[in-house]
């Protein structure tokens, strides 16, 4: 299951549309990094609204994505974590420390706009 990555202005938006296997997640990580470099994006939104759960591997991978993209000078925000998913995550001890989160795509864009304004 390939995750589509769209470019919108200075930002990239990756929208996960169904349950992902580990391989899919690793593929997403590689694809996002390549595209951030190629398109010189300043921000990335990963939309996980459609994900029905995030286990330890998914959380780790998301964290890695955020850190690696930060090394490339861009910000990432994770949007759309569902209430049930969030509750299961914290029970497992997965809190996505140092990862920015927002309610949905709109909020994610607002966050990134805000971020790039304070930087420049």
């Amino acid at each position: 299951m390939e995750v589509p990555i769209l470019k919108q202005g200075d930002f990239l938006i990756a929208t996960i549309q169904a349950a992902l296997t580990d391989a899919d997640l690793l593929h997403l990580r590689t694809a996002l990094l390549q595209q951030v470099v190629r398109s010189r994006s300043r921000g990335v939104i990963v939309d996980v609204t459609a994900l029905d759960l995030m286990d330890s591997f998914a959380s780790r991978t998301v964290q890695e994505i955020v850190h690696m993209i930060r090394l490339r000078g861009a910000e990432t925000v994770i949007v759309g974590i569902q209430p049930e998913v969030a509750f299961a995550m914290v029970q497992l001890g997965l809190t996505l420390e140092n990862v920015a989160t927002a309610l949905d795509l709109e909020e994610g864009l607002a966050y990134l706009n805000q971020k790039s304004k304070t930087i420049s």
Binding site: L53, M54, D55, E84, A88
Partner: peptide, 13 residues
Amino acid sequence: PGAATLIATAISE
């Protein structure tokens, strides 16, 4: 649905 997510997450692990 909330409890089902907890169970599915445990199975995943």
